[in-house]
């Protein structure tokens, strides 16, 4: 049984976006991921952390907690903030939905998290904060999943 845990707490400032995704990528190296799997995880973590900075805390700063775990060949990451929360999670997760109408946001963050990870769960309480839970199996099994996704059949 392969089991590792780590937890980091960072300030919700944009300089920490790169730090957060690099830590997640370094943590997952224990599972010997492909370059693509590593890129998937970096993107997903970057999306979740950015959302906490710009949406949860409205760029005014706060605390973000990142919980990392490896269980056998599965990587888990939770990104937690104590910001404003999401009123309608289902709606927030729709492609191209954004509450920032500055024209600088595409509403693709949750779409990328969903596409690049095997599982995405968002729980949120307005006024209390948001937890984004993600899971990704690393290695041969997820290759099979990709095969199935690409070719539609399991060989």
């Amino acid at each position: 049984m392969n089991n590792h845990k780590a937890e980091i707490v960072i300030n919700a400032v944009s300089e920490n976006e790169a730090f957060a995704r690099v830590v997640a990528a370094a943590f997952v190296t224990k599972l010997d991921p492909t370059i693509e799997e590593m890129a998937d995880i970096k993107t997903a973590v970057s999306e979740a952390v950015t959302n906490s900075i710009i949406h949860a805390y409205d760029n005014k700063g706060g605390i973000i907690k990142i919980e990392l775990e490896i269980k056998d060949d599965v990587f888990y990451v939770d990104v937690i903030d104590y910001g404003m929360g999401i009123e309608n999670v289902k709606k927030a997760m729709e492609p191209m939905f954004t509450t920032l109408d500055s024209g600088e946001r595409s509403g693709m963050g949750f779409v990328f998290m969903e596409a690049f990870m095997d599982e995405l769960n968002v729980s949120s309480i307005v006024g209390e904060g948001t937890r984004v839970h993600m899971k990704k199996r690393i290695g041969s099994v997820s290759d099979t999943a990709t095969e199935v996704a690409l070719h539609g059949t399991k060989r």
Partner: peptide
């Protein structure tokens, strides 16, 4: 590396 913020940058 590019995430959705890059998409927003180009779109904007």
């Amino acid at each position: 590396f590019m995430d959705s913020s890059g998409i927003g940058l180009i779109m904007g």
